[in-house]
């Protein structure tokens, strides 16, 4: 097992190095107007160096004066030593900005993952045990609808109904107008209320695939021989489903959920942007659109690391929960 993990980690590092190179070359090809703008501003200060010198200095500072390959190694060294640079857009160190926004994204991700799991597993099991019934058709259609709904459309519909028509929640933002005057609990509830719609959006658009996955697995398990044996023994239906079938359904689910755990830190780019929640997704969206290379570089690398971790985690978990699986 340890050997397998070590080997996988090594391969992952190799993949990561290439991905970082791809991301870096991509970002380097962007029209980097930031440096020019910055140099323009700095050169206009009284007694400042001329524009050209500032451009040179800034390019050297960000490693933009070197070729892509050379610049890549500079960037790589910075990433490895934890020097992520300063965000151009936010004018603070990238790490500082990241740590200040990651919390809310994690909370949103975690809450919606728990909701998703509860809904998906229970509904998936119900649909599977009553295959081809009206309930099953309804749930399957609902799941497909959830998969087919564009996040932005669903979010907008929620806004129209709950924010505009009913007036229960604010349209944008994480805190209300009177947030500063509220007590500690009031602040907590204020933020919680602002997160209801985003979390509902995130849950609804992703619950469908997990539910269908549960249903398929449950169906497979229900067709297995040991379930037939259990039936033949005359066990009550509830025990067959709840004890024998359900536990075995969980095996593939654990791997999927385990694999999605690192994704909790990735943030929900579209949802956060639509609701104006200052999480990592929204922050990165703004940085990317503004051509903020240090922040985008960091975020994309971070996402790549999360993906690799997720894959590794799901493979390892698969072996852990199912003794029949051998890793090599």
């Amino acid at each position: 097992m340890a050997r397998y993990i070590a080997k996988r980690l090594l391969v992952s590092v190799g993949i990561l190095l290439i991905v970082i190179f791809v991301i870096y070359s991509l970002l380097r090809c962007l029209p980097a107007s930031y440096v020019e703008t910055m140099a323009q501003r700095l050169s206009q200060a009284p007694g400042a160096k001329p524009y050209e010198e500032w451009v040179q200095q800034l390019n050297a500072r960000y490693g933009l004066d070197k070729g892509i390959v050379e610049g890549y190694f500079v960037q790589l060294k910075n990433l490895v030593t934890g020097n992520f640079g300063d965000s151009w857009k936010y004018a603070v160190p990238v790490w500082e900005k990241f740590t200040s926004v990651i919390g809310i994204s994690f909370v949103m991700g975690a809450v919606s993952l728990v909701l998703e799991l509860v809904l998906a597993v229970s509904l998936g099991v119900v649909a599977a045990t009553r295959q081809y019934s009206r309930t099953d058709h309804l749930l399957t259609t609902g799941a497909l609808l959830g998969i087919s709904l564009p996040t932005f459309f669903f979010a907008t519909l929620l806004k129209l109904v709950f924010s505009v028509k009913l007036g229960w929640f604010d349209l944008f933002g994480l805190v209300g107008r009177d947030h500063a005057q509220l007590s500690a609990w009031g602040k907590f509830w204020d933020m919680a209320a602002h997160l209801v719609l985003p979390i509902a959006t995130m849950t609804f658009v992703s619950v469908g695939s997990l539910m269908r996955y549960t249903r398929t697995n449950m169906l497979e398990v229900l067709n297995a021989d040991y379930i037939r044996t259990a039936r033949a023994k005359g066990l009550p239906r509830s025990r067959i489903i709840g004890h024998h079938a359900f536990r075995n359904t969980l095996i593939p689910l654990v791997t999927v959920v385990g694999g999605s755990l690192p994704g909790l830190f990735a943030g929900a780019l579209i949802t956060e942007t639509l609701f104006g929640i200052p999480g990592i997704g929204y922050t990165s969206y703004q940085a990317m659109v503004a051509g903020d290379i240090p922040f985008s570089m960091f975020y994309l690398t971070f996402l790549a690391v999360l993906t690799l971790l997720g894959n590794l985690l799901s493979d390892v978990l698969y072996a852990l929960v199912d003794p029949r699986v051998r890793l090599h």
Partner: peptide, 16 residues
């Protein structure tokens, strides 16, 4: 490698 490249951010960056 392709799986590992975050596609939505990349598309956003290219769009921008």
């Amino acid at each position: 490698i392709f799986y590992c490249i975050p596609s939505t951010p990349v598309l956003i960056i290219l769009g921008a």
